[in-house]
Simulated scan of single mutants.
Amino acid sequence: MTKEHLDKSFKLISELLQESTFTESSLDTTKTRILQENDELFTNPRYLLSEIVHKFAFKNNPMGNYIRGSQETIPLITRSEIAEFVNDNYTSNNLIISASGNIDHNNIVDLAEKYLWRLPGHEKDQKITPPAFNSVSVMQEAEEKNTFIAFAYPAASYSHPNLTNFNVLQHLLSMGNIPSRKEDNFFQAAMDIRGLVSHDSYLATYQNCGLLIQLIECTSDSAPFVGGAVLRSMGHFGKNVSDSEISRAKSLFFNDLLRNDSLSHVSQTNANQLKNFSRKVPNSEFGSTALDLTASTLVTNISEWVNTIYPVIAVYGNIPNEDLIEKFYQHSE
């Protein structure tokens, strides 16, 4: 927004937080729209697999709930539940205001006091027990040409000391998509199998847990070998990773820290840091934790997370046989 619209924006946010009526008609309209959007999203194999691995990895914990709700739960939401949720959570105790760009700090403070002073100050105890990681395998047949596979391993939380190690590991896995000599890249060497269509990896970090997720698309006939290659590379990566690979992965991590993000992303990052660290953490501080990272230290810090724990495995689409996941493990040896 432009600076001259800042006052109006604070006023609008204030009205949304404190004066929303949540009429039955608006609630029905919103639920209908979300259901329609979910119908489309849940036909996207990559999105669906990401939701599935969260559901099973964090089973019996709120972190395992679908973030957008399910087609079964959304129609059951009532106006009173929405109002109660807002009353319990949208309080001054839970409020973090983060702004970036052409701003004046004192002006932001004045506007917050002007428009948000009526927010209730109570704080309901809603601490979520950190979820235990569950190793589960699940398959879902669908009319797809190819096979989609997700592997999820437990990972560090947003404020865990090992987070930098996982950031470097995630970039190390992503290097499988970067042309290089096969012998220099353990994942690319492991995945040098005909039939691999795509491979993505990403790190999902939260306040008290995290997941390292790999998403694979491959032809159905190659699925047993591709799945086995992933398990083999993760189970033995400590024997195959070189310091030169770690250096390239660290460079990718440093580039991420230095990139110019949008102002909205900067504000969101700052808010997360204030919530988890009670301060703004400079990128140099995150980067310094990776400077001395070597292959041996990465293996030492990560091994207990990925070498000794069976991952969540979710398969979707064209499933060639009922014992496909068992074949993954057979081909991982």
Rank of each mutant, 00 (worst) to 15 (best):
K114I: 10
S332F: 06
V226D: 12
F225L: 14
R33G: 10
F277S: 15
S80D: 13
D7S: 12
K145S: 10
A295E: 01
L49K: 11
L12G: 11
D221K: 02
K239E: 10
T300H: 05
K124T: 08
Y47A: 15
L16A: 13
L291S: 06
M191S: 11
N165C: 09
S222C: 07
G228V: 00
P161E: 01
I13F: 07
S262I: 00
L27D: 13
G195N: 00
E72L: 04
N44W: 03
E285P: 05
I103R: 02
T2W: 15
E37K: 12
I13E: 06
I67N: 14
N162T: 02
M234Q: 07
P179V: 04
D261S: 07
F22N: 12
D104G: 11
S92Y: 14
G176M: 01
N162P: 05
Q126I: 14
L252N: 10
T164M: 04
S262D: 03
F253L: 02
F253K: 02
I309N: 12
N93S: 15
Y316H: 07
T32N: 15
F277M: 10
F328K: 04
D7L: 14
T289W: 02
T73P: 01
H236F: 09
S201N: 06
E19H: 09
G69R: 05
I82D: 10
K8V: 08
L17A: 08
Y310W: 15
K280P: 01
F277A: 13
R33I: 04
K11C: 10
N321T: 14
L258P: 04
N270D: 10
A249L: 02
C218M: 06
N146V: 03
I213F: 14
P154V: 11
A112G: 14
E15D: 07
Y310D: 11
P154W: 01
D110V: 05
T43S: 10
N255L: 07
L298W: 02
T21Q: 14
N87Y: 06
Q126Y: 11
S135D: 09
I13T: 05
L258A: 13
L291R: 04
Q18W: 00
D256W: 01
F187A: 13
A156T: 00
L169T: 00
I96V: 10
V306I: 07
S135P: 06
G64P: 03
L212R: 07
T91M: 12
E183P: 07
N60V: 07
T32D: 12
L6R: 14
S288I: 00
S25K: 07
Q207H: 13
S20W: 03
T23I: 02
W305A: 06
L95D: 12
Q18G: 05
Q330E: 15
L111A: 13
S20A: 05
I82Y: 02
R279L: 11
E183H: 11
V136K: 13
L41P: 08
L111G: 11
Q207Y: 08
N283I: 03
N93E: 15
A223G: 04
Y158N: 02
L35M: 10
Q170W: 03
E285F: 03
F254N: 01
N272Y: 08
T269I: 15
I96Y: 03
I319T: 04
L116H: 05
T29I: 07
I193A: 12
E81L: 08
I193T: 09
T297I: 01
D88S: 13
N44C: 15
I108A: 06
A229Y: 03
